[in-house]
Design a protein around this nucleic acid. Structure first.
Lengths: 106, 106
DNA sequence: TATATTTGCAACCGAACAGTTGCTTATTTA
DNA sequence: TAAATAAGCAACTGTTCGGTTGCAAATATA
C-alpha cells in the first residue's frame, strides 16, 4: 500500500477535496455532498489524505471536521525546487533572444 | 487510460527519471542502466512522461535523446499556487504568536 | 549483405486502486 | 429510552498500474 503525498494528489477527486478543505474545514458528509460518489468512497479518499497528513481532524461530538494542513503540501513545492530554476532560465534565454533581436533592429 | 501530469509524477521511478533527465538529455538505454528494472519497464515510464509532454524527444539516427520540458512542470506549480499563501500565512501567524510572546516578556 | 544494436509494441500477470453495498459504533435528539 | 444521524470498517468487484517476456522494425557496423 503505497502512501505518499505524490500518490495522494494524483487522484482528481482528492485534489478537489483538498481545494474545498483549503477554503474551510468540513465534515465528511458535507464533503461527500459536493461529489457524485458515495459517502464511503469520499471517506476512503479522506482517509488517504489524512494518512499522509494533508488533512487534520478535529472532533466535535459525533462530527469530525477535517482541515487542510498546508505545511505538508510544501513537500511538493520543495520537490519542484530542483526544476524551478530551469523554467526560469528558459525565460531568461527567451529574454536573451528577444534582446538580440532588439539590438539587431536598432 | 488516465494520463495527466499529476498521475505521471505519482510514481517514484518516474520522478527519478525526471530528475536525471533534467540534468542532461539521455537515451532510453542510458536511463534504464540507472535503474534495477528492465529496459522495457523504463521505456513504459518514458512513454507516459512523453505523452504528458514532460519529456521531448530528439532523434539521432537510431538513438533517441529525451530531454526534460520544464514549462510543462509549471502546471504543478500553478496548481500549488492556491495553497501557497496558506503556508505563508501560517508562518505569518507563527510570527505573530512569537511577537506576542516577545512583547509580553518585555 | 549479414550481424549487432537501439528502440518500440503486444500479451500476459499479480498487486493496487477506486468504487459499491452492508454492517457496526458512537453521539445526538425526540 | 428509542429513533435518527455521523462516521468508520469489511468484503467484494471491475479497472488500472507496474512489471515481465517475447518479438518486430529501423539503423549502424563488420
Amino acid at each position: 500500500m503505497r502512501r505518499d503525498i505524490f500518490q495522494a494528489i494524483a487522484d482528481p477527486t482528492r485534489r478537489a477535496i483538498l481545494s474545498l478543505i483549503a477554503l474551510q474545514a468540513m465534515t465528511p458528509n458535507a464533503i461527500a455532498e459536493q461529489f457524485p460518489s458515495s459517502r464511503q468512497a469520499i471517506s476512503k479518499h479522506i482517509k488517504i489524505l489524512a494518512e499522509c497528513q494533508l488533512l487534520e481532524q478535529q472532533q466535535h461530538g459525533r462530527e469530525i471536521y477535517y482541515q487542510f494542513n498546508p505545511t505538508k503540501m510544501k513537500e511538493i513545492d520543495k520537490w519542484l525546487e530542483q526544476f524551478r530554476n530551469m523554467w526560469e532560465s528558459r525565460y531568461n534565454n527567451l529574454d536573451n533572444v528577444l534582446n538580440q533581436i532588439k539590438s539587431k533592429t536598432k
